[in-house]
Design a protein around this nucleic acid. Structure first.
Length: 777
RNA sequence: GGACGGUUAGCUCAGUUGGCUAGAGCGUCUCGUUUACACCGAGAAGGCCGUAGGUUCGAGUCCUACACCGUCCACCA
């Protein structure tokens, strides 16, 4: 064995050995009478490249998968990727842009071809990166959300909801991203604080002197105002309700109405209503039958409704011009600085323009109910516990979900519009092109141009990957899945919707335990992002520098169960690399001690206090590690293993073993115990640091066996002895004391210590050997 | 505005049901090449456990308020 462990020499070879063994595929596992255990890998986007979050999440899942495999479960960890509608389309569009082309020039079919080409070339990079992390996924079952079978499942789902009356279509105000030119759902928006202004604008009252002042952050939208609203309880405006004002610039007459949602304490307490470009205004507009005037188009430019002089201007320019004119015409009362949040597209960071557009929605209230129940009744176990509240709060107040997107890359809606001059709104919902429309008699059809929200298909991941809607063997064996590990920022986007669809289509929860892991931040406490390359740590660089095992262990070592964020500290990886090297050298030492002798770990005799102590400690550690992994407390488990192996086994027992092997009476029993402990810790560590433990396992097992499927250590209670541990602690205390005081002669004072050393005179010898000091009792 | 996290050694973090003489890794300092390991060993220094109250024989741990940092939610125009 080399003096140092060099990960690069082993990792690739070991991974190939695992793949060759076939044991990533549950069908090849033997002795799996303990039942099935399945995990669906949260599918990374095809556009994704490995970041720290993936490294963390993959490690967590791999530890659980390997642990369960060693515990005799038939483990399936199913991998795959997500087509990631907007994200992927954007990437390919950008690529085309560099060549000076747009997707529209190419046309839909050609463009989709291009995206597929891109996907074939780059889409699996991330999966290869997961392999570098040691992921024990069954790659033979890899799925993609746009696979033919998967797409069938998506279609079936849509048709099912439609037939149930849960899907409807209609004009609504939606979050419109002008850059992606599509609608997006409420949860695909992010917010950014901006130093804005609050403009106070006077709206003159009709036929009267005087005016009502409103405050707005978006003066350009006033061109589309169709009312002013005040709170019905607001006394200062009481008498004005029902009156009319003249809208400045446009010179339209618009009514003053009342609505309880108007905050009388904000601004002047009067709110201008632009139903076409604001959520609240839309709502108030609907309830009051207000006219809708679209002044901003889907391209974020002013429309002709905005008036001749504004038409074609960008929102920004229109704002400038509107403000100038208001000032000139003396409508502007004042301007205040006003920091506020603007909404941005989560994918491309363009400002969202609320727009009225015809979209498809799914009614959520009824669907949410069983999903609420499942978690409230703990059939789905969300961990850490506090996230149950987060999950429930959202579902209890859930809004309808806009599922249509004006993109090309994705699952096209199984909706066929009738090509009929008279009725352009008539359509048939069907997986195949229909022959004839029963409603309007049309025989010619055109499929809807919209595709479904990416998350609509992701919602089916736990079962569509297993072959649903067909009743496959896999579905029967591995659904519901056992465990989901994911980031908490997709609770709403993904987790809730998987629970909903699992219950709707299979009448069973999609997973038993859900663990929301910590978010990895850079060491300055900021989110890692591409815009700050220095703070953004690439896991592959870490693997290169410290090896995969150290990267994995370092992540686990920095983690603790409930915590929300981890400030990534490279020092933990370094410490882990050193720990792995320590393990390597412990093994090397034992290997040398064994002198190629075949020592069977049978009939263990513990002849000394140290023997009994280390066996007691080992068994306690086996128990705790097992419990901790079972409860997903992987940080706690790795901490304990680190401490036990380094500071108990190596620092104490190994040193004592050097003395014990000098004595023919204790030599053999000591060697046996050394080997026994080592074999156990190799197994306990395997889920965490799979590569080095596999190498070491081969070193001590000449047979071509893999630790990957070796049985998990059993906790033997009879070895665990409190009294022995206490006695050994006394020895440690005495030795530590002697060392710290650097004394040459030591007199034992404590009665308890005297008693022990009188009872067991050999311990005096031991202390002497460890400290080279004569004891006086 | 609401909800949830965090605040413990110079840095990054552990501290279960209240018993702590508050721990680890890194860093600093002092020794050290002895049957594995200098990616090592032995040791040392370093803490009013965010602030202020309260409960208790006893509080880092429980309660209340506040401050700062962070995350999520909301129809703050």
């Amino acid at each position: 064995m080399d003096k140092k462990y060099n990960p690069k020499e082993h990792e690739e070879k070991i991974y190939k050995r695992w793949e060759k063994s076939g044991f990533f595929n549950p069908d090849n596992l033997k002795n799996t009478e303990k039942g099935n255990y399945s995990i669906a890998l949260p599918p990374p986007n095809v556009t994704g490249s490995l970041h720290m979050g993936h490294a963390l999440n993959t490690t967590i899942q791999d530890i659980v998968a390997r642990f369960k495999r060693m515990r005799g479960k038939k483990v399936l960890w199913l991998p795959g990727t997500d087509h990631a509608g907007i994200a992927t389309q954007n990437v390919v569009e950008k690529m085309l842009q560099k060549k000076g082309k747009t997707r529209h020039e190419l046309g839909r079919e050609k463009f989709i071809e291009k995206v597929w080409e891109w996907k074939e070339k780059y889409g699996n990079i991330i999966l290869d990166q997961l392999k570098k992390l040691g992921a024990s996924c069954d790659w033979s079952r890899t799925r993609f959300t746009l696979d033919k079978k998967y797409s069938k499942a998506v279609e079936k789902t849509f048709i099912h909801y439609y037939k149930k009356g849960l899907i409807y279509r209609g004009p609504r105000i939606v979050n419109w991203c002008p850059r992606c030119s599509t609608a997006i759902s409420d949860i695909e928006i992010k917010y950014k604080e901006e130093k804005g202004k609050l403009w106070y604008i006077k709206y003159p009252l009709e036929n009267k002197d005087g005016f009502i002042t409103i405050a707005t952050t978006r003066p350009e939208t006033m061109l589309g105002d169709t009312a002013i609203a005040v709170n019905p309880k607001d006394k200062k405006y009481e008498k004005l309700i029902g009156k009319k004002v003249i809208l400045p610039l446009a010179k339209r007459k618009i009514p003053i109405i009342s609505h309880h949602l108007v905050d009388k304490d904000f601004g002047t307490g009067a709110l201008k209503i632009t139903p076409a470009h604001d959520n609240l205004d839309w709502k108030i507009g609907q309830e009051n039958n207000l006219e809708i005037i679209n002044v901003i188009g889907p391209d974020a430019k002013m429309t002709k409704e905005a008036g001749k002089e504004f038409k074609g201007l960008s929102v920004k320019d229109a704002r400038k011009k509107v403000v100038e004119k208001l000032k000139k015409e003396n409508y502007l009362q004042k301007v205040e600085d006003y920091p506020h949040k603007i909404s941005l597209c989560d994918r491309c960071s363009s400002p969202i323009e609320p727009q009225i557009s015809t979209q498809w929605f799914i009614k959520m209230e009824q669907l949410a109910k069983p999903a609420i129940k499942a978690v409230a009744q703990k059939r789905v176990n969300l961990l850490p516990k506090r996230y149950q509240r987060v999950y429930l709060d959202w579902l209890e107040n859930v809004k309808d979900w806009c599922i249509s997107r004006q993109l090309w890359w994705g699952h096209r809606l199984p909706v066929w519009f009738c090509e009929n001059e008279k009725n352009k709104q008539c359509f048939v919902v069907s997986s195949e092109k229909p022959k004839k429309c029963k409603k309007c008699g049309a025989t010619k059809f055109k499929q809807s141009n919209d595709v479904l929200d990416t998350w609509f298909s992701s919602a089916l991941w736990p079962f569509a990957t297993l072959g649903w809607p067909e009743k496959t063997k896999d579905l029967k064996e591995f659904y519901p899945t056992s465990f989901l590990s994911t980031a908490r920022d997709i609770i709403y986007l993904w987790v809730t919707r998987m629970v909903i669809s699992g219950l709707e289509f299979l009448n069973k929860i999609p997973f038993k335990d859900v663990y929301f892991h910590s978010t990895i931040l850079s060491i300055d406490g900021q989110r890692m992002s591409k815009s700050r390359p220095k703070a953004n740590v690439n896991p592959l660089d870490m693997i290169d520098k410290y090896g995969t095992d150290a990267t994995r262990f370092g992540l686990m070592y920095s983690m603790s169960f409930g915590q929300q964020a981890i400030k990534f500290d490279e020092r933990n990886l370094k410490a882990s690399r050193n720990f792995i090297n320590k393990l390597w050298n412990i093994s090397r030492f034992i290997d040398m001690q064994l002198e190629n002798k075949k020592i069977e770990i049978k009939n263990i005799e513990s002849k000394t206090l140290a023997d009994q102590w280390i066996l007691s400690r080992l068994n306690k550690v086996i128990k705790n590690t097992t419990d901790n992994i079972q409860n997903f407390k992987l940080g706690e488990a790795s901490d304990e293993l680190y401490d036990f192996i380094w500071h108990e086994f190596a620092d104490w027992y190994l040193e004592i073993s050097k003395i014990q092997t000098q004595n023919p009476e204790t030599k053999n029993s000591t060697l046996k115990i050394l080997k026994l402990i080592l074999c156990n810790i190799i197994r306990l560590l395997h889920p965490f640091i799979p590569f080095v433990t596999e190498v070491l396992y081969s070193q001590f097992n000449p047979l071509d066996e893999l630790v990957m499927i070796a049985p998990w250590p059993k906790h033997k209670k009879e070895f665990q002895k409190e009294k022995i541990e206490k006695e050994f602690q006394i020895i440690q205390e005495i030795v530590n004391h002697i060392r710290s005081e650097k004394i040459k002669h030591y007199k034992i004072e404590k009665q308890e210590y005297k008693k022990l050393l009188t009872q067991k005179p050999k311990l005096r010898e031991l202390i002497k050997s460890l400290t080279k000091i004569e004891l006086e009792i």
